[in-house]
Design a protein around this nucleic acid. Structure first.
Length: 612
DNA sequence: AAAAAAT
């Protein structure tokens, strides 16, 4: 037990023991806010230094610069993706050399390293073949026969928590709408210091300006610190990331230090690259203070630096599944030291597209690990599947156990026809352009590109992010959006979950999403951390099957339901059928999207007038 | 019928 007690009494001791270790990369500084204003010209200093070729080149003459928004500057050079990786500017040569076919360890279990990707044996179509390959990669079987015990219970009640009566704990949970399940549930904490985090955590928390734990943190922290498995469900923007990251740091600090060739202790899995990067940025803020190293492993970026981080030894890995499996297959790392596993956006991670990959990864991790699932949405069907990977789990739900939207988002639903959408969008933009950001969701990548193109022709400073764009372009577009240099972003569901961008005052669902869970996540890009936001949603008759459940979500959040929406709801059945049947029922449409041009020429110069 | 996740 009191491992952790001792450590906490002297937080410097661990740092000293580890003084030989190299610290993590410095945290990424917050992007400068501003640069976009209603009246004035927008300062634009040329393409982003990270990607720019020449740097700071003046935008070409012509309409493109009229509003001060840059024409698209193709971010090439640094991420020379898809050409073998040997020619990157920073000279990571031969990343591909040591990949497939390396011999498995001679030890127990099959090795199954013979599934090269070079041959494309499962079909050469870009879309489809790739995923089947991924699913077919066999990782070496792990032998968990004689593992040594590891410590995972670090929860020590402070006197003030101990003094809380059972009755007070229940009252606190009622007041903050905390619903708990499981055996031996700890009392919630009311203040940050009651979680017994190391001082550096409290310092960073103070610096970030947080005053009180959110409900999910108040109950989730003591549960996670107890070392038990956990399902944590709380609305978008309510602080789930810190709810699992801070216990992760405590967990890491109490484990034996990494030996040569050992992989991470904490593994966090996320469904998109941008979300993984964002979690990593959050982790670094805290971990760097404890000399705990963390890194992000995700596709579309050069492997060299990622491999280097893994080889050097890193306590926390935040990853998207595909690249992690790739790294495991190539034995750049292993998961034999992982004792704290997090699935962020867990319902998404367990849906059809991801489940096989998750199974593969989880099979590499010792069964007595601590496993934590987090999401704002948790369809009933997922839980059965999820429980396969859990033991004696707690469950904590904030607010209603049903599908629920964040209450601080105003939701406006408009019943329209397909052809009316664009003009209606323009009207909304004219009202909404006030210096903050506007995020527009589309159903398809192609639709995304088409609307973005038209918006730019009409002079609207919009850029688009979706999965057919190069990672460099995705990074660049998101950065332009975050800084406000390009205040309108159109997106597919790649941007639906988890992304935390400041000052998104307005989300527009140009196309209705394919599930109500996605609806809740999409609109949750606004109204973060108690801020207000507005979500506009275009609903057509072809979306009628969602109307009834959408009405429920609106009512639950205290929103006005328009007569048009009620009428549509009455005219159609429920999308959820008996029991939420829209989960895991959809197959993948093959070969749909069109690959974005590497040159970025799908982003056209802005039209020559300022329409707002 | 879509998106995402390796090259």
């Amino acid at each position: 037990m009191n491992h952790y007690d001792n450590r906490y009494a002297d937080p410097s001791s661990y740092r000293e023991r580890r003084s030989d270790l190299i610290g993590p990369p410095p945290p990424v500084g917050p992007p400068a806010i501003g640069g976009y204003g209603r009246g004035g010209p927008v300062p634009y200093g040329g393409p982003p230094p990270a990607y720019g070729r020449g740097g700071g080149s003046a935008p070409p003459a012509g309409a493109g610069n009229f509003n001060g928004y840059p024409p698209f500057e193709p971010p090439v050079g640094r991420f020379d993706i898809g050409r073998g990786g040997g020619r990157t500017a920073n000279g990571h040569v031969g990343v591909g050399d040591r990949r497939v076919g390396s011999v498995g360890r001679g030890g127990a279990g099959g090795r199954g390293f013979d599934l090269g990707r070079g041959g494309g044996r499962l079909g050469t179509s870009r879309d489809g073949g790739v995923r089947r390959d991924l699913d077919n990669i066999a990782l070496p079987k792990q032998d968990f026969g004689n593992l040594v015990h590891f410590e995972k219970n670090f929860y020590v009640e402070t006197p003030s928590v101990r003094a809380m009566s059972e009755h007070e704990a229940v009252a606190y949970r009622t007041r903050r709408e905390i619903m708990v399940e499981g055996h031996d549930i700890p009392k919630p904490i009311r203040m940050f210091h009651e979680a017994n985090f190391p001082d550096y955590c409290l310092e960073v928390i103070a610096k970030l300006g947080f005053v009180e734990p959110t409900a999910i943190q108040a109950q989730g922290w003591p549960m996670a610190l107890k070392g038990r498995d956990l399902i944590g469900i709380a609305e978008t923007g309510s602080g789930k990331t810190l709810a699992y990251l801070l216990p992760a740091l405590v967990h890491v600090s109490a484990q034996p230090r990494l030996g040569h060739g050992e992989g991470p202790i904490v593994l966090v899995l996320a469904p998109t690259r941008e979300l993984a990067v964002q979690i990593q940025e959050e982790a670094v803020k805290f971990a760097s203070r404890a000399n705990i190293r963390s890194t992000c492993i995700y596709g579309g970026a050069p492997k060299g630096p990622q491999i280097r981080d893994l080889k050097r030894g890193v306590e926390i890995v935040i990853a998207t599944p595909g690249r992690l499996i790739d790294m495991l297959e190539a034995q750049h790392t292993n998961l034999r030291r992982v004792t704290y596993l997090v699935l962020d956006e867990a319902d998404r991670m367990l849906d059809m597209g991801f489940e096989p990959q998750i199974r593969k990864i989880v099979a590499q991790i010792r069964p007595d690990r601590q496993t934590l699932y987090w999401s704002a949405t948790w369809p009933r069907e997922v839980e059965t599947l999820a429980r396969q990977f859990l033991r004696n789990a707690y469950k904590v739900i904030i607010g209603s156990p049903y599908l629920k939207a964040n209450q601080s988002i105003a939701q406006v639903v408009e019943v329209v026809t397909e052809v009316e959408k664009y003009n209606r969008l323009i009207k909304l933009l004219k009202e909404a352009m006030d210096g903050s950001r506007i995020l527009i969701f589309m159903e398809t990548k192609k639709g995304c590109d088409q609307v973005t193109r038209q918006l730019r022709i009409d002079g609207w400073p919009a850029l688009s992010i979706h999965g057919d764009k190069s990672q460099a372009e995705r990074d660049w577009v998101l950065a332009e959006f975050k800084t406000g240099r390009s205040p309108i972003m159109t997106a597919t569901d790649v941007a639906a979950r988890g992304l935390d961008v400041k000052d998104i005052k307005c989300v527009i669902n140009y196309d209705f999403p394919s599930s109500l869970e996605d609806y809740v996540h999409r609109i949750g890009r606004t109204g973060r951390a108690g801020a207000k936001g507005t979500a506009f949603t275009f609903l057509t008759h072809s979306n009628a099957k969602f109307a009834r459940d959408l009405v429920k979500i609106l009512q639950e959040a205290g929103q006005v339901v328009s007569p048009a929406l009620s009428a549509l709801a009455r005219s159609a059945g429920s999308a959820l059928g008996g029991s939420g049947g829209n989960f895991r029922t959809r197959g993948r449409g093959g070969g749909y999207g069109n690959r974005a041009l590497i040159s970025g020429s799908n982003v056209i110069p802005l039209g020559g007038r300022r329409p707002w």
